[in-house]
């Protein structure tokens, strides 16, 4: 059994369990908050993109284009280092805030394209049904269009969320401790990359599996009998 210990020394992993747990928790929180931002930004962006108002849809289109054409790592650096120069806040964003906002804005661009496809797939009849009972634009969106749109695009949204969770490892570059950082600790202190990064990889896999079942549940709840 020695060859296993040579390749992957689980006793060392056991010693670093607190770091991995802390990193896992941190990654989960960062991803969850970034997901919240990305879904909000994505929904607003999708609605703006479909607006007849040229100012609104051009802003939304420009945002998506800007995000898609630049690397996420640069976006994280720009938000973290450049944002404080803006006179909006009276203090600097810390690493965690900057990282989460950058991740959220990045994923939001991709989410908005997915959500837009979902909204456009809802038939005109659903909107007219809602109009005929006197619902306002916001009521129609909130109670009729968006629930069905989200249910329909839940699989691609899940895929984008998986990308977001994996991408969250990049915030370690601005000094945020998360799952990838826990792996780095094992590498730096013990020079054991397998123990560090194989464990990290398995953790990402576990998060993804949990996400998958949550999405299936949500899809059933939102989509009615047909899903």
């Amino acid at each position: 059994m020695d060859w296993i210990l040579d390749f992957y020394n689980y006793r060392v992993v056991g010693q670093y369990l607190p770091e991995f747990a802390r990193g896992l928790g941190s990654t989960a929180w960062i991803s969850l908050l970034a997901l919240g931002i990305s879904l909000s930004v994505g929904t607003i962006g999708a609605i703006m993109r479909m607006s007849a108002n040229p100012v609104l849809w051009r802003i939304a289109a420009g945002y998506v284009q800007a995000i898609r054409s630049t690397p996420l790592l640069i976006q994280i650096y720009l938000i973290y280092f450049t944002f404080p120069a803006l006179p909006l806040l009276d203090r600097r964003l810390d690493e965690l805030e900057g990282g989460i906002i950058a991740l959220g804005l990045n994923a939001g661009a991709y989410m908005s394209e997915i959500i837009r496809a979902g909204i456009e797939s809802i038939s005109r009849g659903q909107v007219e049904g809602a109009q005929s009972v006197g619902m306002t634009y916001l009521q129609r969106m909130r109670h009729v269009v968006l629930p069905q749109a989200f249910a329909r695009v839940a699989p691609p949204l899940l895929g984008q969320t998986a990308v977001l969770i994996k991408d969250s490892s990049l915030v370690s570059f601005i000094g945020v401790f998360e799952l990838f950082g826990a792996g780095l600790v094992v590498l730096n202190e013990r020079l054991m990359p397998n123990e560090g990064f194989l464990t990290v990889a398995v953790c990402y896999l576990v998060i993804y599996t949990v996400m998958l079942s949550v999405t299936k549940f949500a899809q059933r709840r939102l989509g009615g009998a047909t899903g």
Partner: peptide, 16 residues
């Protein structure tokens, strides 16, 4: 429209 009910050929029920 609250005061004007409409029944459509294709029902237009909320599917969800």
């Amino acid at each position: 429209r609250q005061g004007v009910g409409m029944v459509f050929q294709h029902f237009n029920l909320f599917q969800h």
